[in-house]
Amino acid sequence: HNLTITQGKLFFHYNPKLCLSEIHKMEEVSGTKGRQERNDIALKTNGDQASCENELLKFSYIRTSFDKILLRWEPYWPPDFRDLLGFMLFYKEAPYQNVTEFDGQDACGSNSWTVVDIDPPLRSNDPKSQNHPGWLMRGLKPWTQYAIFVKTLVTFSDERRTYGAKSDIIYVQTDATNPSVPLDPISVSNSSSQIILKWKPPSDPNGNITHYLVFWERQAEDSELFELDYCLKGLKLPSRTWSPPFESEDSQKHNQSEYEDSAGECCSCPKTDSQILKELEESSFRKTFEDYLHNVVFVPRKTSSGTGAEDPRPSRKRRSLGDVGNVTVAVPTVAAFPNTSSTSVPTSPEEHRPFEKVVNKESLVISGLRHFTGYRIELQACNQDTPEERCSVAAYVSARTMPEAKADDIVGPVTHEIFENNVVHLMWQEPKEPNGLIVLYEVSYRRYGDEELHLCVSRKHFALERGCRLRGLSPGNYSVRIRATSLAGNGSWTEPTYFYVTDYLDVPSNIA
């Protein structure tokens, strides 16, 4: 807008934040220059609390790290170098490059900038070799853009010569660093050979998330399962459950009422301010606690030095998902009996873990797994792929695949051998790939016309006998059925096997 004052003059007093240069501009645009008398524009009460600059400061050096910015700028000295009290560095987070010096300023003089007072450097006698002032900004957020400017702080001049310097606002972004852990990993099994893994992005990506790394490792069953005799009275049979499938998407929606109208769909109840505040506090606490764990609990591995020492970490090797089922080394339970199943799973520490690289999504279907087997899954978020990966501390989750139908069934015939004193040795093959492992066998036998009897055969007993022995049988026709019990439950009964026990007292003698 054009402003013209045809008559009258300007009068400025007691404006401590208004620089004289701005008042002189007002004289020019209003056409009143030359009308004012000496005392109409006070030299001592206008701009006496402001830094009124008329020179431009330029930054000469900028260096960044993930949490620091090192700045240096060209030296500046007023005509009387004693008038320079120091520099004021202003900075704040700036997602967009549209910041002005006066953003967030209120009537009390406060604003949204963080201000650092910096002492002037030592003055050199040689004007050509003056030290460049600077400042190291610490405690910054990774991968965050900051708006920065600097200006001088000078003393009051009796001659009211307006001098000083100020830089333009520059924008500097800190470097990326390792992201925080992925949030809320959930693993479920939808079949006997697959596990579905879902997660949420890290709360602090500290860069642009480029991919996720998912490692999985087959877990050995508890050692007590191999040692305890679950045929003993009072000892509860062990059981394991597989990871249940995901709930429906509708039930997972946030901010939804727990109660549904019987007449149909209901609208979600909005969260109160107290609920939102509580969630923010919980989120802040979780982030602080995660940072504490990362800094205190997890110790970084030592990389190899120039002395030739090897990095103890196993090298990563990509495998196809079809090879995942046989990740671990199978060892027989008892070496003397080769027909026992290889369900003991000690994992070799030198073995390469299978892994998958996930790009542009937060889910993965891990296939080719062994049925009813526990897996430990390790999830890392990465925001750099080359020249070397920059990934987060791992988040861990466990899951067990679903049982395989008929995996616990005894394959092959049940054979028998009759000894003296009416002892019958029953023999059968253990299931080759049971659900988890076989903890015991149930032997059901009966003599024709009598009630059915049951015998429990422990895992250890089966390994020693290759089956079991029935003792003290009365003469007669017998039928026997056997079924295995694994961590997933009972298998199917075998087809009945028949044998006849004679009275050993009636056996004919070869003595003449």
Rank of each mutant, 00 (worst) to 15 (best):
D506M: 08
N208T: 01
V359E: 06
G322V: 06
E258T: 10
W216S: 03
N477L: 09
P403M: 02
Q219P: 12
L213S: 07
I482F: 09
G322M: 10
C267S: 02
E227L: 10
I366A: 07
P245A: 12
P312N: 10
G325P: 14
D250K: 03
A394Q: 13
S444M: 08
T347M: 12
S251V: 15
V299Y: 14
T241N: 12
D408P: 01
S474A: 10
A407I: 08
S304V: 14
E420V: 10
Q380D: 07
F337K: 05
V296F: 10
N360S: 10
H211D: 02
R370E: 12
L470V: 13
Y292I: 03
V327Q: 11
L228I: 13
E351M: 07
V327E: 07
W242V: 12
L277T: 02
E465S: 13
P338Q: 12
S304R: 05
H454F: 00
R459G: 04
S283T: 11
E290L: 01
P434T: 06
S398G: 04
G264L: 14
R483D: 00
W216E: 04
T347E: 15
L505R: 06
N339V: 10
V297A: 06
V457K: 06
A407R: 11
T340D: 11
Y448T: 14
A335G: 14
S398E: 01
G476A: 03
D261G: 02
A335R: 12
R313E: 15
V443S: 01
T272W: 09
H352R: 09
R376D: 04
R481C: 10
H211T: 11
E420L: 09
S479L: 04
F355L: 11
R316V: 12
R481M: 06
Q429M: 10
V480R: 02
S458H: 04
S251D: 13
C468D: 01
L321N: 05
F419C: 13
E282F: 07
F298S: 02
S243I: 10
H294R: 01
N490C: 09
N490K: 11
K357L: 09
K271T: 06
V327G: 09
N360Y: 10
Y396L: 04
S284F: 06
S251E: 14
P332V: 07
Y259A: 05
N206Y: 01
S243W: 11
S474G: 11
Y478K: 01
F372N: 04
T272N: 02
K302A: 07
S243T: 09
L455T: 09
Y500R: 12
P354N: 12
N208S: 09
R483Q: 10
T340R: 13
T494D: 02
F499D: 01
F246S: 09
R319M: 09
R481S: 06
